[in-house]
Structures are given as structure tokens and as C-alpha cells.
Computed example of a mutant assay.
Amino acid sequence: MDYYYGLVLFICCWIPGFGKLPAPINVTMDSFNFKNTLRWTQPADLEGDVIYIVEYKIDIPSNRVAYKRICITHEQQCHSSVITYRSYVRVKARKYSDESDWVTIHFDPYEETIIGAPDVTVSSRSGHLDVSFKGPLVGAELESLKMKYGELIYRVLYWKESDPAHVLNVSTSQSQDTLRDLEAWTVYCVKVRAYVPEYNKSGEFSPAICKETTNNESRKPSAPINVTMESFNFRNTLRWKKPDDLEGDVIYIVEYKMYVTLLFYMEHAPLICMEATNSSIFNIL
């Protein structure tokens, strides 16, 4: 009996892997604008009160670099925005005194993070479109993307709203640009994304913004609409409605002229039409 008890104790304590937990699976790092989250899946045969430990170390050629702990959690994810350089990241499961093997992945936020869309504003001026953009802001401390990568280019795509298949583009390293040589009184749509030349990496496009161009002159105001004359017992009132696109301090000018047509027959005489303004006097030529 003592022999079998000793054998079981030996197996439990000395044979490697006995009682070891299954390791987390599907370990991936999600990263958007340098905000990182390590995610994994709990194995189907791992149940009960399980905690996970997440650590990382920077990927540099040195034996003195040790792993640093990020999370001890019951969840199947760990916010890892503390990682700002290429690193090794690992996770393991623990249940009471039992542990799994580490699962390690390599992660480089500069290459793998998804770059979001910049904030874009578009304004119409003298036949041009002025486009300005900023961001996106990245990381836990909301740094500028240019501070992260150094060189940053904005790629601007624009097209006529009526002809979306014909897309033009310009690139700039500045925070604004002016789209010129546009057709007057035409609606153009604009979208912008950031591009990092060093990593040949493009960000997401901003939503399209559509604006109408003007020209170098002031635009003729829209005419009044629904113009009608109300008349009761020869008391007349002209009424109209203001167009939807007409704003600000607007005045209206009302004029009239009398239009009279006289029809009569004279032997060997033509049909005569005569017009007078603000007068009821007509002369027959």
C-alpha cells in the first residue's frame, strides 16, 4: 500500500506536465491608434475559477531585459497600451496552484496598429475648396500621429458628386490644402486619410464631405417662390415664400407695369398691340 501511495506522490510532484492546465488559444493583439488590447480564448476543457497573467518585454538584443506584468485578470482580454515599441507578449492560465504554459506572440504597434481617419473640415472660397485636417490622436496619452511616426502625409481624394467614378487626388505633408481648378457652382466630395511612408502604411478614410463651389463673384440670390396675388374687392396683396437657401437680412422689391392689348379691325389696318407703364394713355400709330 505504501508503495502505491509513494508512486502516486512521485507522479504528481515530479513528472513534468502532470496536472498542467491547457494554455489559452487564439491569442491576438487588437490595436487601433496605438490603443492595444490582447485577447484570447479559454480552452473548452478549462473550467472553474481561472485567472490569466499577461506580461511583456521589449524586443531588443539584451539578456537583461525581463518580462513586466501587465494584467492579472479573470477576463479573456488585457488592455496593453503600455506597449509602445515592438515587444514579446505572453499569457498563461492559472487555477489554484496549477498553471498552463506561456503562449507568446510578437507585436510591433508601429506596423500592426490600425490608423484611424483624421478629422476633416471643408470650406468653399472664391471658386476653391479649402481642406484642413488633423489627427488622428493616438495612444493612451493622445499624442499626434506625426509625433509617433515622424514623417506623415495626408492623401486627399476628391470628385464631382455627379461623377463619382472620376476621382482626383493630391498629397501634402501640411495640415491643410486648397483644391483649385474646380468648376463653379458644382458639388465636390472630399475624403482624406493619413499615410506613413516609412512603413508604407495607410490609415482609414474620413467620411466623405460634399460642398458646392462658388466663383469669384457673389452668387445671385435665389428668387422668391410660390408668388401669388390675393384680391378681395379689388384690394390686392402679393404674397411669396422665401427660398430655403436664402438666409440673412433679406429685403424684397415689388414693382408692376400695366400691360394692355387693344384689338380692333380697320380696313387695310394691321393688328396693333400697345404697352404703357403706369399709364392708361395709348396712342394709335
Rank of each mutant, 00 (worst) to 15 (best):
K242A: 08
L145D: 05
H166S: 03
Q76I: 14
E198L: 05
Y85I: 15
S80Q: 05
D108C: 14
V260E: 02
D30A: 10
A23M: 04
E151D: 12
L262K: 11
L182H: 02
P24D: 02
R219G: 02
W14I: 14
V187S: 03
W14A: 09
S123M: 08
D244K: 15
M258C: 06
C78P: 09
N216D: 10
R39C: 05
Y52D: 07
V131M: 02
Y199H: 09
I272G: 04
E183I: 09
S80H: 06
M266T: 11
C12E: 05
W159Q: 07
E267N: 15
I58P: 06
E255Q: 12
V131S: 00
F232T: 14
R235M: 10
A165M: 15
G127Q: 07
K146D: 06
A93D: 05
A223H: 08
Y149K: 12
C189W: 05
F282H: 06
S222P: 13
D108N: 15
L182K: 01
Y259L: 15
H106R: 12
S62P: 14
G116A: 01
V131R: 05
P43F: 01
D108S: 13
G19W: 08
G139T: 11
D163T: 10
Y195M: 03
D119V: 15
V254H: 05
Q76R: 12
L262G: 08
N278Q: 09
A23E: 03
G203Q: 01
E161D: 06
H79F: 13
V167S: 00
P24W: 02
Y56G: 04
H79V: 14
R86Q: 12
I114G: 00
E99W: 11
S80P: 06
C12S: 07
M147A: 11
V250R: 03
W240M: 04
E204R: 10
F234K: 12
N216W: 15
Y52L: 09
R69E: 02
W40S: 02
E55D: 11
E212N: 02
I25A: 09
V82A: 00
I72F: 12
Y265R: 13
Y5P: 11
R39E: 05
E183A: 03
G127R: 09
R155V: 11
E204D: 09
D245A: 03
R180L: 09
Y4N: 12
I105N: 00
D249I: 14
I115V: 02
S231R: 15
Y56T: 12
I115A: 00
V167L: 00
E212V: 05
E183Q: 08
A269R: 14
S279V: 15
T104M: 01
M29W: 12
P118S: 02
A184N: 14
P136L: 01
L21S: 06
H128R: 13
H106E: 10
E112F: 08
P109Y: 01
L246R: 12
E230R: 13
Y154I: 08
S126D: 11
W159M: 05
M274S: 05
S162K: 03
D59F: 07
M229E: 02
I60T: 15
R219Y: 04
I11L: 03
N283G: 10
P61I: 11
R125A: 04
N216G: 13
D245Q: 02
G127I: 11
E212G: 01
P197I: 07
V156M: 00
L9A: 12
L152V: 15
S80E: 03
